[in-house]
Amino acid sequence: MATVLLQPEFARRNTAGQRLVEVDADTCQALIERMDERFPGFADAIATGVAVAIDGQIYPDPLQQDLRPDSEVCFLPALEGG
């Protein structure tokens, strides 16, 4: 089971306040689909301006990333820079 970690503000709006969610998924795309089934609107909420960190690595386009059974997935604001 992959573990999803969320910041409080995002969780309040999109996952009924749950900041830690266990999801059975072997890709990030599958994880997002499972999350959207449990929390309708989740996929839309992360569609824009959100990056994903999988096991510590940040991916701008994570959908094709594989997950390990013990992967940790964090959703965080998309990053830019100067």
Binding site: L5, D55, G56, I58, C74
Partner: peptide
């Protein structure tokens, strides 16, 4: 490496 950052993930 492994320290959890305030913004979520662990440091690579």
């Amino acid at each position: 490496e492994g320290t959890r950052a305030l913004y979520g993930p662990k440091m690579p």
